[in-house]
């Protein structure tokens, strides 16, 4: 009857970096010990993806698989595919001890783009952005809320909880205001 909508209806802001709310984006949380024998095969067959190393996020086409903790992965994929993939992953893992859940609607996703994108997060996250490696998924806080981010072509992607999407948009736009670059020039 109705189409799913993202938390902010794809709001955007142009500052010294561009902020865009994306979505709706499919997200699946998968909890399992990473040495579970059935896990790599399930990722391979259902998502054609590898198991990421510690604190890595890997891409396979439109799919991203991120290492969230020693027993948790975050999978990003097109929203329309979530229901089928949840079922497929659950089946592929069989009787192994694991939890697969659709969290697409529990999260919000932002793109922070432009050459100075990292400066936006330098104002919000206690993370050494210069040391962020390609393909690293960093969980931390953005001002007062939990967040996770990684580098993508053209900038950064940041995931947070849906209920605080407006707050996250607020802190990102505050930090990206024109003229407030940390390193002008």
């Amino acid at each position: 009857m109705s189409e799913a909508v993202s938390a902010l209806g794809n709001a955007s802001f142009e500052g010294f970096a561009t902020i865009r709310e994306l979505g709706p984006v499919g997200m699946i949380t998968l909890r399992a010990k990473h040495d579970l024998p059935a896990l790599p095969k399930a990722l391979k067959t259902v998502l054609t993806a590898e198991l990421p190393e510690r604190r890595r996020i890997i891409s396979a086409g439109e799919v991203r698989v991120g290492w969230m903790s020693p027993d948790e992965l975050l999978i990003l994929l097109p929203y329309a595919e979530v229901a089928d993939r949840v079922v497929a992953l659950t089946e592929a893992l069989g009787t192994a001890h694991a939890l697969v859940a659709d969290v697409s609607d529990a999260r919000c996703l932002f793109a922070i783009e432009g050459e100075k994108a990292a400066q936006v997060l330098m104002k919000l996250c206690p993370v050494d952005m210069a040391a962020l490696e390609r393909g690293e998924l960093r969980r931390t806080r953005a001002a007062q809320v939990p967040a996770a981010f990684w580098a993508e072509e053209g900038g950064l992607r940041l995931v947070a909880f849906r209920s605080v999407a407006a707050y996250v948009m607020g802190i990102l736009t505050h930090s990206a205001r024109p003229g407030s670059e940390l390193f002008p020039a």
Binding site: A7, K123, L124, A143, Q144, V145, R162, S163, V164, A165, A166, Y167, G170, I171, H174, S175
Partner: peptide, 15 residues
């Protein structure tokens, strides 16, 4: 810092 006005604290909103 930034914690004033609308972003004084994270306000959680339902859909």
């Amino acid at each position: 810092g930034e914690a004033r006005g609308e972003i004084f604290q994270p306000l959680r909103r339902t859909p």
